[in-house]
C-alpha cells in the first residue's frame, strides 16, 4: 500500500529524516514510536506531501506521490490524516467539517455529502452532534469528528499523528475505540503514538525511530518485550515508567 524509499528531509541545515525506508502492506497497522524531535511527524507529513521530501520516492496505492503530474489534491483524499491538535474548522459545525472536502474536492451535492458525513459521524458515534460547533465538543469528541472528516473521504490509508496526546486521560479511550474499529474494518493505518496498550493489542508492527532514522522494528511483543538496540530499550523503559 505504501512504499517509501530513502526519504531524506532537510530544514535548512537541519537533517531531519536520514534515509527512511517504510513499506506498509494493505490492512496493516504500523505503530511508530520514538523520542520527541526524532522526525515522526515529519515522516507522516511527507507521506501526504504536506512536507516536501528533499529526496526519495513515495508510492501509495500505486500512485507516485512525488511525480509532478500527480494531482496531489485527489491523492490526498485517499490518504486520511488525523492531527494531534484536531484542527477542526471552528466556524463550521461538525457536519460542515466532515463534508467540506466531500463537496469541494469530491464534487458531491450537499444532500449526498450530508448523507456521507452523517454516516461518517455515525461511525465515530457522534451523529447526534452533527450540528454542534467544535467549541461545544469535548477534546475527545473533536478528535473523533476529525477522524470522521478523514473517513468520509473513504481513504485507502490513514495517518495518525499522536491523536490522543492532547486529550485528558478519561477521553483517550473513546478515540482509541474508534481507531480499533477502523482497524477491524480493514483500514491500513500508520499511527504515531505513545499508547502502548493500543499498540500491543492492535499493531501488526512497531517501528522505533530516533534521530531521523528507523532504529528497530518488529512485532509489538518483540520490540516492547525484547528490544535489541540499547536506545530502544532506554526509550521503552522511560515511557513504561511514566505510563
Amino acid at each position: 500500500m505504501i512504499q517509501a524509499r530513502a526519504i531524506h528531509k532537510h530544514f535548512g541545515a537541519l537533517h531531519v529524516l536520514r534515509g527512511v525506508d517504510l513499506a506498509v502492506a494493505e490492512r496493516e497497522l504500523v505503530f511508530v514510536i520514538g523520542p520527541s524531535g526524532s522526525g515522526k511527524s515529519t515522516l507522516l507529513r511527507c507521506l501526504n506531501r504536506l512536507e516536501e521530501p528533499s529526496s526519495g520516492s513515495i508510492v501509495i496505492d500505486g500512485i507516485d506521490l512525488l511525480d509532478k503530474r500527480t494531482d496531489i489534491n485527489r491523492v490526498r483524499q485517499r490518504i486520511g490524516m488525523v492531527f494531534q491538535s484536531f484542527n477542526l474548522y471552528p466556524h463550521m459545525t461538525a457536519l460542515g467539517n466532515v463534508t467540506l472536502a466531500v463537496r469541494k474536492v469530491g464534487g458531491k451535492s450537499r444532500a449526498e455529502a450530508d448523507a456521507i458525513g452523517l454516516a461518517a459521524l455515525e461511525r465515530v458515534g457522534l451523529a447526534d452532534r452533527a450540528d454542534h460547533h467544535p467549541a461545544q465538543l469535548s477534546g475527545g469528541q473533536q478528535q473523533r469528528v476529525a477522524i470522521a472528516r478523514a473517513v468520509a473521504l473513504e481513504p485507502r490509508v490513514m495517518l495518525f499523528d499522536e491523536p490522543t496526546s492532547a486529550l485528558d486521560p478519561e477521553l483517550v479511550g473513546g478515540v482509541l475505540k474508534v481507531m480499533r474499529e477502523l482497524r477491524e474494518s480493514g483500514m491500513t493505518m500508520v499511527v504515531v503514538s505513545h499508547e502502548m496498550g493500543f499498540a500491543r493489542s492492535a499493531a501488526d508492527r512497531v517501528i522505533f525511530m530516533a534521530d531521523g532514522a528507523i532504529v528497530e522494528q518488529g512485532t509489538p511483543e518483540a520490540v516492547f518485550g525484547a528490544p535489541v538496540e540499547a536506545r530502544t530499550r532506554a526509550f521503552i523503559g522511560q515511557i513504561q515508567r511514566h505510563a
Binding site: 504536506l50 486520511g80 490524516m81 477542526l88 467540506l100 472536502a101 474536492v105 472528516r149
Partner: peptide, 23 residues
C-alpha cells in the same frame, strides 16, 4: 488562523485556493 487548519484542509485534498476560500 492556525496553520493546522489549512494543513488539515490540504490533507483532505482541498486546493490552496479552496482552503483559502472555505477555511
Amino acid at each position: 488562523v492556525p496553520a493546522g487548519h489549512s494543513e488539515a484542509a490540504r490533507a483532505t485534498g482541498l486546493s490552496r485556493l479552496q482552503t483559502l476560500i472555505w477555511v
